[in-house]
Design a protein around this nucleic acid. Structure first.
Lengths: 255, 255
DNA sequence: CAGCCACATCCTGCATGCAACAATCCAGCC
DNA sequence: GGCTGGATTGTTGCATGCAGGATGTGGCTG
């Protein structure tokens, strides 16, 4: 939303390569651990090696690729623990954002913006059609972005960007497909309640409350994750699903 | 420690350029806002444009450079607010690491390692010579790294790396020159006490205590920052000092 | 039959040349 | 005199050629 790079999909070859590669990886075009051979990608992406390499380096920073010692990159694989960690860490950072917002104070118009966004969300909570869910995702992102802006910490924004760029770590990662899993529908009611509490906490300068509430809010995604992992046929339709490591012979480490 | 890139300073041209440029920037070879012209850097660094550009992109990720819309990079300038934010955010992340360590449990040998490191620190707290301070910095870094390892969260490590790579955000950023400012000497006693409390909290699985203690521990750097800002003649000798914006009547222009 | 060495192949790291874009400066015109 | 247009210069974006290194394979030998 803030960035205007989607409007110009190929203003530069680097972004073209970046968008194409990210799309390909998340859609499962490569198996986890598969090596990203530059010359092979030149054909499939349509750019030269120079911008392509820049894009690969960028994707390594985003966490989708992993650099090899001898050079080159492979597609990363994400364990369940990785995803849980990412969600928890997002909660920590968004909690910090909420705390900053409460401590540093929010302008009246900022609070109004939060309220109007959350009011729009309330209208959609009980809708069941797909279009409403798409709209919900937008509004949800908007709400989280608003709080982040109110926190007024560029560094925090950067750190959070680095987390939500990971698959399944975003605030709305699992929301979209909830349209198909009615058992998780009531979660939206809880989320709306969390938002309302956050607004109130920020308005009343209750920093501790705001922080812990935002953390708990992020943990909603953990619940959603569990639900999804027991419905693999739906999970497979989410972007990046192919990057999740099978839970099989992995040593289970209960928290 | 884990990475062995310092042993081979120029194993690849990219790292050579990266190390050289970082050194040059932190030593004040460029003024904040100055444009980093590639061709000019080719001479001064001694590598070609291709690896140099990779290094520039890396430095932008580290936060030392800022990318321009039309292309190219400029040296970033850090306000006091930026530094305070970085320190506070480091506290949040190290607090999370301490909490993880307490929640997930530390092995006996990990606790022993923490204790021995902190015991070594205790020996140095009242020493005043420069060599002792250098050793103190090493041990301090070691202690923080140990806790981070015990937390067992690769993602958290990455996030923290992204913060401490900023100038003045590291755990020992202001310690080294404390040798010259006796008024901040007793801070080391407090820091040692914090460490001891952290070990105890982790051992007793007191997650909340561990988190808030680590946060408070990071705020020591805030105190040190204030002290330094009132001793500009000492501050100037720290790497990266030239990147700090003067606090004067600067017109803040929020994006 | 197993281990080791040498060779061939593939891939990445790097350098350089070319082209397009942006900024700047100067000149001409209103 | 100010503004606008164009030209020139400087800088980045991109492509490709080349070389070094890692890897895998085959054959030879113990």
């Amino acid at each position: 939303m803030g960035k205007s790079d989607v409007a110009q999909p190929s203003r530069t070859q680097i972004t073209r390569a970046l968008l194409t590669l990210r799309e390909m990886i998340l859609s499962g075009a490569f198996a986890p651990g598969e090596r990203m051979v530059e010359l092979a990608l030149v054909e499939r992406v349509g750019v030269s090696r120079t911008p392509l390499r820049l894009a690969l380096a960028e994707l390594e920073h985003e966490g989708l690729l992993r650099g090899l010692d001898g050079g080159g990159y492979v597609v990363r694989e994400f364990s369940h623990a990785d995803i849980k960690d990412a969600i928890e860490l997002r909660g920590v950072l968004e909690g910090t954002a909420a705390r900053y917002a409460a401590e540093r104070g929010a302008a009246a118009r900022d609070l109004r913006g939060l309220r109007s966004t959350n009011a729009a969300i309330r209208e959609l909570v009980h809708r069941a059609d797909y279009e409403s869910f798409e709209r919900y995702v937008d509004l949800n992102e908007c709400f989280h972005t608003r709080i982040l802006k109110i926190a007024r910490s560029p560094l925090l924004e950067r750190a959070l960007e680095g987390i939500v760029s990971l698959p399944f770590a975003g605030a709305s990662a699992f929301v979209l497909a909830e349209a198909e899993l009615p058992e998780s529908r009531e979660i939206l009611v809880v989320a709306h309640r969390h938002h309302a509490g956050l607004i109130e906490a920020i308005e009343r300068r209750q920093a501790g409350r705001a922080e812990s509430l935002a953390r708990e809010h992020a943990r909603i995604a953990l619940t959603n994750l569990e639900i999804f992992l027991s419905h693999k046929e739906v999970l497979a339709r989410l972007p990046g699903a192919s990057l999740i490591a099978p839970q099989a012979a992995r040593q289970p480490e209960p928290a």
